[in-house]
Design a protein around this nucleic acid. Structure first.
Length: 310
DNA sequence: GCACAGGTAGATT
DNA sequence: AATCTACCTGTG
């Protein structure tokens, strides 16, 4: 059993999962992507998604109306589904969520690790790391919750909001609410989930979206440059949250979110002290190329794990 | 008690 | 145009 204090708190304070008997037997996911133990955990719980939690030796996660348990064992991934869930459609959703059509090993090899020992070290520690393809609307919501919050707090907020506003799922837990539901709920309900000043941003964004049917869907389809500009029209969405939404919620691997961690890495390890954010964005595009967002996730993981000296 | 945490927006130089 | 600050809440 590996559980940090924050995870334990989440488990104890919210009844978010069903009983074990409500789940089907474990099955091997035959065409699963290849992971290592560390890249598997980092992909699910490394800060790109906020609705996975570790329970004993497996992870339980939710997105859209999906609920899945995943376990990594001897190089293979196993899954378990709630009793009433259809296996074929669940596997399709899993493949989409894990972006199985994308060869992340090929993308890793194409990154400039041969003349970048920092990136090389990061890739070695988290070989097989993937960028998830999460639902766009949910990704936007989660990262609107994220500013100056640590991952366990973001997870706790998402659980509280799901419990309060989200539709019930196959195991009795709850999905994240849709934007119309968030708009109807109002700011006070968001404040109750400990969102603090983020509650006003999220409420205003919900109202903005409510008055523009189809706007978010069109944004998801727009070219990255335009999509980013549109996202940044939303209250509380600056460059960083826009890029997180594009990277983790729309598969835009060219989006390179610069948070405090990545800024420190670039400043210290890449010796770019004193560079401003727009300059750092330029550096990332030039140095890491058109999948810079993938490099960002390797660097973020490695820095948090203490593998990049600061 | 106090600094700090996956930022953003508005005010102030 | 660059820099400073308020904004909520939890944690160390």
């Amino acid at each position: 059993m590996v559980a940090n204090a924050a995870t334990t708190t989440i488990q104890n304070s919210h009844a978010v999962s069903g009983k074990d008997c409500m789940f089907q037997d474990w099955c091997r996911w035959k065409d699963a992507p290849t992971f290592t133990q560390s890249s598997f955990k980092e992909t699910l719980c490394g800060g790109q998604a906020f609705r996975w939690r570790q329970i004993d030796d497996y992870y339980e996660g939710r997105w859209s109306s999906n609920v899945v348990r995943l376990r990594y064992l001897d190089g293979a991934v196993h899954f378990a589904l709630p009793a009433s869930v259809d296996r074929t459609s669940a596997l399709q959703n899993l493949r989409s969520y894990f972006a199985c059509e994308t060869d992340f090993y090929q993308l890793s090899d194409a990154l400039p690790w041969r003349n970048d020992s920092i990136l090389s070290t990061a890739i070695q520690h988290f070989s097989g790391l993937r960028i998830l393809r999460q639902p766009f609307a949910e990704t936007l919501f989660c990262f609107l919750c994220s500013s100056t919050k640590q991952i366990p707090q973001i997870q706790a907020i998402c659980e509280a909001i799901a419990l309060d506003m989200g539709a019930p799922l196959a195991d009795g837990s709850h999905a994240l609410p849709t934007w119309p539901v968030i708009a109807a709920a109002g700011e006070a309900r968001l404040r109750a989930a400990k969102l603090g000043y983020r509650a006003r941003y999220i409420h205003q964004t919900a109202l903005y979206l409510a008055s523009r049917p189809g706007w978010l869907e069109a944004t998801e389809r727009a070219p990255t440059h335009q999509a980013r500009a549109r996202l940044m029209e939303l209250p509380g969405v600056g460059r960083k949250i826009a890029d997180c939404t594009l990277l983790f919620g729309a598969g835009r691997l060219e989006a390179f979110p610069i948070d405090t961690w990545v800024e420190k890495i670039l400043n210290r390890a890449y010796l770019l002290e004193g560079w401003k954010l727009p300059q750092l964005q330029d550096f990332a595009r030039v140095h890491f190329g058109n999948t810079s967002g993938y490099a960002q996730q390797y660097l973020f993981a490695a820095a948090r794990a203490g593998h990049i000296p600061s």
